[in-house]
Design a protein around this nucleic acid. Structure first.
Lengths: 106, 106
DNA sequence: AATTTGCGCAATCGAAAGGTTTCATATATA
DNA sequence: TATATATGAAACCTTTCGATTGCGCAAATT
């Protein structure tokens, strides 16, 4: 199935996993210890994250270390870009308003 | 049901709606004209967006104008913050590497 | 060689998602 | 007042999601 990064971060457990492995690679078992679910459930989440290339695997013996593909996260940032322009502009408008008020006070 | 902004933006149609009404308020009918679904389907999406306060309504006679609650979008940005630090740091590391190479060339 | 450990995969299940159709209601228009 | 229009809500259906259970396989350990 076609996976999407926005769909990937929709699930709270997956967001937690992302945060967890952002700084250090971890095995499925180690990750699962942090949640109230089975290892298999975590494994499924990892598969979804891997499908949309949000995580990368590093095999080491029988263990698999998962780590965050940080560049992929930029895609979310990229989508936000269009809106950031708006809210920054709003802020400028507020600036202008405050300036107008100050002028009026003089 | 408890709605979540990340769940809200998981659906591609909802993301398109968000982009559509980011700059100007629109009625459900006008919004629906842009998609290959019924007005009722769009209405459902709007309800979900309203539930997590991503859109605000402005009643005007029998019409309802929907517009984006831009501040709510910042919550996504806020979550991204922690990762932005990482990828900016990566960039600095690359900078340092390039610097080291330059030094070595001398 | 036998057993334990780490892992992914497949089957199954209940809940939720997203869509359509049908309706009820309020406002505009004839 | 009768009719058309804009909208939300409810009922229903199919697909997808997230979780569990049971399994098989490869690597480590005994």
């Amino acid at each position: 199935m076609r996976r999407d990064i926005f769909q990937a971060i929709a699930d709270p457990t997956r967001r937690a996993i992302i945060t967890l492995i952002a700084f250090q690679a971890m095995t499925p078992n180690a990750i699962a210890e942090n949640f109230n679910t089975t290892r298999q459930a975590v494994s499924k989440h990892l598969r979804i994250l891997a499908e949309c290339e949000l995580v990368k695997q590093e095999h080491q013996g029988r263990e698999i270390y998962y780590s965050l593909e940080i560049d992929k996260m930029k895609e979310i940032d990229k989508w936000l870009e269009q809106f950031r322009k708006i809210w920054e502009n709003r802020f400028n408008q507020l600036d202008n308003l405050l300036l107008t008020i100050k002028k009026a006070e003089k």
